[in-house]
Design a protein around this nucleic acid. Structure first.
Lengths: 127, 127
DNA sequence: CAGCATCCTGCGTGATACTG
DNA sequence: CAGTATCACGCAGGATGCTG
């Protein structure tokens, strides 16, 4: 899958959206940033707390997610050029406008996603 | 500002959501089903139309996406046991309740996603 | 028509170690 | 503290051919 030239139509904004938030942590990063700027380490610790404590998010992965979010125009990176290093991430206006979307996703998830993985393959036909 | 005490159980529904709609076509399949049941081939052709015509979605992939959606409780599979085969897919109640979420995503995408990939790495700081 | 079987590849993700 | 470098692996996703 090399190039995705911007095809128009209805499905594409959705696909662009999916690309934008692809990855395990991007949505959660955005959500964690909704209350204000956070430093790199704070984001990292927040992610560890949120999921399972056994999960270790490596700096490589987090760095990549953050870069992608910056490239996608959802967050900004502010580098205080000091020692020891201090970098803050905060939402752009686009990022802020995305928060309600995440909120809707969360609410939907909490209502319809109660242990979907458990019953996964059988008798889900609540119809 | 950073009142992050609510970050515990919050991330999980989002991750479940991401798992549920992971894959290139799931959201678009759901969206295409919003107006009523569709047959396998209709879904397939709909996906071809929406994206780039050059893209070929293989039966293997589509089959997998559909199974995952069924397992996730978002769609139902109705197999008319006839020859030639006829299978219809339609949304469950959960799937229907998911449509507004997709709609919100679409609207957000159309407003904030105008060619993000193009400007990607530079001067996105619309802030 | 609506899939399944098999093979193959790129990328996202994790582990580990190192740096300014 | 906030990353980068390197290695490795699983898996989504495509190509192709076959089937009930």
């Amino acid at each position: 899958m090399a190039n995705r030239k911007s095809a128009k139509g209805d499905g594409c904004p959705v696909m662009a959206f999916q690309k934008l938030i692809s990855g395990k942590y991007k949505i959660r990063i955005l959500w964690d940033l909704k209350d204000g700027p956070l430093r790199y380490g704070e984001i990292r610790r927040g992610l560890l707390r949120g999921g399972d404590a056994s999960e270790e998010i490596t700096p490589r992965v987090l760095s990549r997610e953050l870069k992608a979010l910056v490239a996608g125009g959802l967050i900004l990176r502010k580098d205080f050029a000091v020692v020891p290093p201090k970098v803050e991430y905060r939402l752009t206006r686009s990022g802020q406008s995305f928060i309600p979307v995440i909120d809707m996703i969360r609410k939907w998830g909490m209502r319809h996603l109660r242990g979907v993985e458990e019953r996964s393959a059988f008798s889900v036909a609540a119809e």
